[in-house]
Amino acid sequence: MTIHEAVKAYFEPKVEELVGDILSFNFSPESRDSFALVTNYSGKIISEYVNGDKKKAYGFAIVIVKNYSTDGDDLNLQCMNFVQSFMEWLETQNRQKRYPVFPDNCKIEKMEVLQNMPNLAGVNTESGLARYMVQCQITYKEIESDLLGL
């Protein structure tokens, strides 16, 4: 399983639980309650060690499309709170060290949300939809040595 597949597989059950839909990969549909995983970088080297091991980063955004209102109601606030609660779930996963299953030569150090609130990445007032974006990063060590880090 590749790292892309591992990250997608990790988020799929949560997306199914929250909205009963599939998680799109590198494509964000223009439909209510859609979730997409959009990669930013993969295998970005943060540091290298003398034994050949490397600290790397996998960057991605979770894009969530929700309803949008131009009325004076609380719909936009409710949608922002929904996305914020997803971010809190991600932070809990990191604290509890519940990570995607990467290849055997990789050890995840942390999975972090890179912002303290979702970005409102776009609004389509004609269709009544808003696109929220949550930037994330997984930092991991790729073990190249024969002793697998020992």
Rank of each mutant, 00 (worst) to 15 (best):
S24H: 13
L90H: 00
L150T: 05
V134A: 07
G128I: 00
Y49W: 08
N105E: 06
F102P: 02
N94W: 02
L77A: 09
L23R: 05
F86I: 10
E88S: 06
E48W: 02
E112H: 03
D73K: 11
R95N: 02
P118V: 01
K56Q: 11
Q84L: 12
K56V: 00
D71Y: 15
T92Q: 08
T2L: 00
M117E: 15
T39P: 10
I64S: 12
F60E: 09
Q115C: 12
C106E: 02
M87E: 11
F35Y: 15
V134H: 11
E91G: 02
Q96A: 03
Y140V: 04
I108T: 06
E144A: 10
Q135I: 06
N116L: 11
E5F: 04
G128Y: 02
C106F: 05
Q78G: 03
N119M: 09
K54T: 12
E126F: 07
V19P: 13
E30W: 00
V65L: 05
K14W: 10
L18M: 11
V134C: 09
C106K: 05
G59K: 05
E16Q: 14
W89P: 02
V65F: 01
M117V: 14
I46Y: 06
P29N: 07
F86E: 07
Y99M: 10
Q93L: 07
R131L: 04
E88M: 04
F35E: 11
Y41D: 13
S42Y: 02
N94G: 00
I3P: 00
E16H: 12
L23W: 10
Y41M: 10
K97N: 07
M117C: 14
S31C: 02
A121P: 02
G122H: 11
H4I: 03
